[in-house]
Design a protein around this nucleic acid. Structure first.
Length: 175
DNA sequence: ACAAGGATACCT
DNA sequence: GGTATCCTTGTC
């Protein structure tokens, strides 16, 4: 029986380790009719603190990034390139801006496609990642097979300083 | 290879 | 009030 991942477990500062652990977990989405869809998370990226130049909060607290400073366990959804919504799970204790970008789930690759297919938009920005909100994370006991977990640099962050753009904070599993 | 597309942040 | 930039995608 799958169990929801508790917000409390997202409120520590080990965001990179948290991101790695989210690969293989389940993204659950309640549809308007009440039906629940479950998608296994295959690819994520960690964004960790104001010192991380690829993190939106590297420029400090703004109306957009305010959500990142909240205690872990809420969604951060923003618009990129004017077209695509990106969904992140906020992590860290209150006052520490960090999040995990969900880049892909099984059968859907690409963060923009993912949000489109699951009808995730900015209406979920700042909303708690609980079953009641309609979008949450579950652990169904699945274990990523040994050797299937891959690590590499994050995508689309070349604008950041090479030191940060090169950090191996993208995690995915080879299916 | 590249345009589309709109919010955001940072100027003047 | 103007402009550069952005955690992308589909079509060229």
């Amino acid at each position: 029986m799958p169990r929801a991942v508790k917000a409390k477990s997202l409120q520590n500062t080990r965001t990179v380790a948290l991101a790695r652990g989210l690969v293989g977990k389940v993204l659950a989405r309640q549809r308007p009719g009440g039906r629940v869809e479950r998608h296994r998370i295959t690819e994520v990226e960690a964004y960790d603190g104001e010192s991380d130049l690829a993190c939106h909060a590297s420029k400090g607290r703004t109306p957009r990034t305010e959500v990142l400073y909240r205690p872990g366990g809420v969604w951060y959804v923003y618009l990129c390139y004017g077209i695509h919504e990106m969904v992140n799970l906020v992590t860290g204790p209150v006052g520490y801006p960090a999040a995990v970008l969900i880049r892909g789930v099984e059968g859907i690759s690409g963060p923009g496609r993912l949000t489109k297919r699951l009808a995730i938009g900015r209406q979920l920005n700042g909303v708690a990642a609980t079953r009641a909100s309609g979008l949450w994370v579950e652990d169904d006991g699945f274990v990523v097979p040994t050797g299937a977990l891959r690590t590499g640099p994050r995508i689309g962050v070349d604008y950041a300083d090479a030191e940060w753009a090169g950090k191996p904070w993208r995690f995915w599993m080879k299916l």
